[in-house]
């Protein structure tokens, strides 16, 4: 075991992982990596490693769930048993069910579901390694997977957390910071400046809340450029649409 530092932020305002207060973790994105899915994305954000896959639009099973006017959006967020220090039981926990719900609700405003009535769009988010802020990383990956599947989107959804750790407002909290401080993940459609997810775990004053929100929005905008770059890197040299065998 490595010795844990006593404070998460030192006197020079440098965090445990060497970042500045308003700095994102390094993000690496890959696209179209799951052959059987219609669209997929893989993201590494710091120590987070997350896969997202999108299936559909396809026929809804069971049939009675189908919506006559739009596509049914289903989302499953799941953490692998090996994603955390202590083995996580693979059955969906209360936390995972909740995160699945909030991710579904934060992605649904970006999707033109009305183009595909009576179908379902299924999103699977698998956390391979978790180190705080997995819901944000999951949203980033899922939105890219949706775009990769060719599903019409109003905008990509970018997500980022801000929060308060040891009386400092910080961006993109990692595991230890998340456990100790206040965490506020948000998701944003940057083109319209529309917040689609806003949660908070902990206590912030009204002023702190506003500052944290602005910080998180800035983080989302950085994430958005990275998302666009990833799509560009994957598709700029593609001459024709990808043919499925």
């Amino acid at each position: 075991m490595t010795k844990k530092p006593l404070t998460l932020i030192n006197k020079k305002n440098i965090r445990v992982d060497g970042r500045k207060l308003d700095e994102l973790r390094p993000i690496k994105i890959e696209l179209n990596i799951i052959g059987n899915a219609n669209g997929s994305a893989y993201i590494e954000q710091g120590k987070n490693k997350i896969l997202a896959a999108v299936y559909g639009p396809k026929e809804v099973h069971p049939r009675h769930l189908a919506l006559p006017d739009r596509a049914l959006l289903r989302c499953q967020y799941h953490m692998s048993p090996f994603s955390v220090k202590e083995r996580k039981r693979p059955a969906p926990s209360r936390r995972e069910t909740e995160i699945s719900k909030v991710i579904r609700e934060c992605l649904s405003p970006s999707i033109f579901g009305e183009y595909y009535p009576r179908t379902s769009i299924d999103i699977y988010i698998e956390v391979l390694e978790a180190d705080g802020g997995t819901r944000c990383s999951g949203i980033i990956a899922a939105s890219l997977a949706l775009a990769d599947a060719g599903i019409p989107l109003r905008d990509l959804v970018a997500a980022c957390a801000a929060g308060k750790v040891e009386e400092h407002l910080v961006l993109d909290l990692n595991g230890p910071e998340d456990n100790k401080g206040t965490d506020m993940p948000i998701a944003l459609m940057p083109t319209f400046n529309a917040v689609t997810l806003l949660q908070m775990n902990g206590i912030l004053t009204t002023d702190e809340f506003e500052q944290a929100l602005n910080l998180a929005v800035k983080g989302c905008e950085q994430v958005y450029t990275l998302q666009k770059e990833a799509l560009k890197a994957r598709y700029i040299n593609v001459k024709e649409e990808v043919e499925e065998e």
């Binding site: 990769d148 060719g150 499925e244």
Partner: peptide, 29 residues
């Protein structure tokens, strides 16, 4: 007017139409 898919812009100046030629998968329904 916004794009809603990944692709290349096609500006049809004659018919004054803008469309996006898809580069990713096309939804198959």
């Amino acid at each position: 007017v916004y794009s809603n898919i990944i692709g290349r812009v096609l500006l049809d100046v004659l018919n004054k139409e803008v469309s996006v030629h898809p580069l990713a998968h096309r939804v198959n329904v």
